[in-house]
Design a protein around this nucleic acid. Sequence first.
RNA 1: GGCCCCAUCGUCUAGUGGCCUAGGACACCGCCCUCUCACGGCGGCGACAGGGGUUCAAAUCCCCUUGGGGUCACCA
Length: 543
Amino acid sequence: MPNVVTRFAPSPTGYLHVGGARTALFNWLLARNTGGRFLLRIEDTDLARSTEDATRQLLEDLSWLGLKWDNEELVYQSKRVDIYNKLIDGLLAKDLAYEAWETPAELDAMRQQAQRAKRPFIYRRRKYTEDELKKFADEGRKPVVRFVMPVKEYRFFDHGLGKENVWTGRESQDFVIRKTDGMPTYHFAVVVDDAEMGVTHILRGLEHLLNTFNHITLQEALGYDRPNYAHLSVLLNPEDSSKLSKRDRDKRIRKRAQEWMRSTKKDVAALASASTLTGERLEEWLNADTVQLDLSEQPKVMRVVGLKETDLPEIMVHDFRKNGYVPEVLNNFLALLGWSPGGDLEQMTMEQLVEKFSLDRLVSANSKFNRDKLKSFSTDWFSKASPERSLAAIKDYLAVNPSSLLNQANDAQLADLLRMNAGFHILADVEEKSRFFFIPDDQIEYDTSAIDKVLLKNDKAGVAALKAARDVLASATDWSTHGLETTVKTYCEQSGQGLGKVAQPLRLAICGGAVSPPIFDSLAFLGREKTLARIDRCLSKVA
RNA sequence: GGCCCCAUCGUCUAGUGGCCUAGGACACCGCCCUCUCACGGCGGCGACAGGGGUUCAAAUCCCCUUGGGGUCACCA
């Protein structure tokens, strides 16, 4: 396959959705596999929705994934309006397109009428009388331009489905190619740009399957070659098989907020004062699925109802990054959704993915996005990654999590934390298990059920063990992981106790709970002074 | 609802007419390891949606049914 050119053409609506990331990845892989080019184009013809900030976020995610595009100059459709208009004027001159004057409201009424009559709404060309045209002009109406779709059979070969797609064209209608604001529609711009950029292969979501009939017809009218098409299966939510959507995170928060109000018997006013949002705003949000909290409001509610960032379903590439996934893992996992290298091979490097990728191994059935499997890929990846790569990963994680306490750690300490947490799934797990190191000694909060179980049970056996262990540690000469292990284990043997009887009280004293990295690593990392201070504070709490 | 696409364990998938008593991975369950949580090791549970054909032979080809998804914008 010589001279393959693929492209990714997102509309800038913020951070990159994983579905979009997979589309970008497949296009990138095909280009790399064939020695071709991968181009990036920004589809910003919807002026109301496109912002510079959104474009920046999109490029940030794409770069983070490592999907480098080959065009130095980004193509922005909004800057190419003159080109589209010239071509549209050409179609108008050839009568392959025409001006249509219905307002959105009128079209809406026509659709409703069709629906009531139980027939599909199909827009076909109609003649306007002189009077009508004069009336529209007097009203100051602006026309759209519609493309004449011939009523005939359409067909194209789909490399994703591996079959020819046929459409009778009975429902084909004259679709809009220029909006009243003078911008081309997606259908027009996409066809022109793909042709002008020399795109040979278009890999896109299955939701575009029917659009393809419009696009190939436009190509014929404009005299363009037809590119190769491959439509990719849709990524679905594992819970309800709905399409993976940004709203899923908001949905999760709303559900939890409702549970919280029910179980604590609190009302909206209580939630409002605790979260500092207005009751009005919360009321509106709680009662309508269509209303979403914005990114600054979400954390306020989450804190009150006890939701962590990692409890929310990751949807945007940025979400995965913030939770401590690494691009190699996300790419690997995404590649396996709707494609397979064959056989039992699953975990692959980017180089292997590039080498193995081919269109004839695309899988046509929709796939559910299984985060458990992604997480296990991450676990495996970190267990094999070099210390240097892992260190770079956690520094990137901390860069997008500026409020993390681990930002206080230097590189050597971060490397140490990664080592002692070996076996972790994602970097957010390292953070969760290590943040206690960086909390001031007098702000450690003790988990009451852990105190009962570890210290108070059996007539305060744990308290006695902790006191004894304090003395042993206070006189320890070697405060290294290994030295502490020798000291404490020797003490345990001499006093005839299992290590667990001593380690758990110590763990509770230094971190406030029953879970931490291995105890000797933890003690060594904390240091003698802080360790003893925390033990003393813990003992005074239970006294 | 019309039109279109799809269909192997709960999930991602291998399978391209005989190598299939259907393989792997995740999840789940049990045992082992163990200073906690994890990691790890060993084992287990678990699928060709249903019905008709074609063929010596069907998970694989064809048809119907059922189920799931997509799409019906001056959004992309």
